[in-house]
């Protein structure tokens, strides 16, 4: 922390400990991924890219990557398409019980995801015989709706309502005013909510856990199962690839809306 004035030595020590716990284990994942050996041993036995090759060639992983990307993209898009109208209604509509309504749409955040997963598994997959992809899509969309509503809502709250009125006064119909004025105002919120939603869905374990079938499995759950069964460094390599992809997403996030802002939006 050169350049930062270290205030109190105790505070500084706690902060360093915090960073060690947050970051160091991730470093070890990367380090073991490059091992030439066949166990999760540290220090690694030799250096090679073998396990990356293995991971990429391992078809359950690759299929799961495709499935997870598909699910995350669809759920994010759906959550935005459903969430933006809700945001508009909550912020611009004249309705009683606005707070209650917003609370309703944020409610998936407060119920444990594993519990929601159990409910969907039991009621939709077993009870109504829905296929697991549809169930996953429903669940992930409901999970992402709060992000969409809250983050785009924060964008909308910043926009002057007079902008839409000005557009109407200049001859734009309500729909036209939405597309030419409101939507561009919402852009940062849409990007934030989209990124956040995509990452949340892609990484999700608790909600997806019970909703897996042989035909459609998500990546994190597939990796989890693999770790439980065999103890080789292939998952380290797969993890490193996921890490690399996440870094790319983070850079995109930083370049478009700013990293801290994205997460500012989910704070209560």
């Amino acid at each position: 922390m050169s350049g930062t004035r270290l205030r109190h030595p105790v505070a500084a020590a706690l902060a360093v400990a915090g960073y060690v716990i947050m970051i160091v284990p991730i470093g070890f994942v990367v380090a073991t991924a490059f091992t030439a050996g066949s166990t999760l041993r540290f220090p690694p036995e030799g250096l090679s890219l073998t396990w990356f090759g293995e991971a990429v060639a391992y078809s359950p992983f690759m299929e799961a990557v495709v499935s997870s990307l598909e699910l995350a993209a669809l759920a994010t898009a759906l959550a935005l398409v459903l969430g933006v109208p809700v945001t508009l209604a909550v912020h611009r509509g004249r309705i009683p019980g606005r707070g209650l309504l917003e609370g309703l749409f944020l409610s998936p955040l407060v119920v444990p995801e594993l519990v929601v997963g159990l409910a969907l598994y039991q009621q939709l997959m077993i009870g109504l015989h829905l296929d697991n992809f549809t169930t996953l899509l429903l669940g992930h969309t409901a999970l992402l709706l709060p992000y969409a509503v809250r983050v785009t809502g924060a964008s909308l709250a910043l926009a002057d309502p007079a902008l839409e009125e000005a557009a109407r006064g200049l001859g734009a119909s309500p729909v036209r005013a939405f597309f030419t004025v409101t939507l561009p105002m919402l852009r940062p919120g849409l990007v934030s909510a989209g990124l956040l939603g995509f990452v949340t869905s892609f990484n999700n374990v608790p909600l997806s856990l019970l909703l897996q079938t042989r035909d459609f499995r998500t990546l994190p759950v597939t990796m989890l199962d693999y770790v439980q069964q065999s103890y080789d460094p292939m998952v380290a390599a797969a993890s490193t690839l996921v890490l690399a992809a996440t870094v790319v997403v983070a850079v995109v996030a930083e370049r478009t809306v700013g990293f801290a802002k994205i997460f500012g939006g989910i704070n209560r």
Binding site: M22, I23, I26, N203, P220, M223, L224, S239, L243, T246
Partner: peptide
């Protein structure tokens, strides 16, 4: 780390 998979 908030963006990174819990499994990783």
């Amino acid at each position: 780390p908030l963006l990174l998979s819990n499994v990783v």
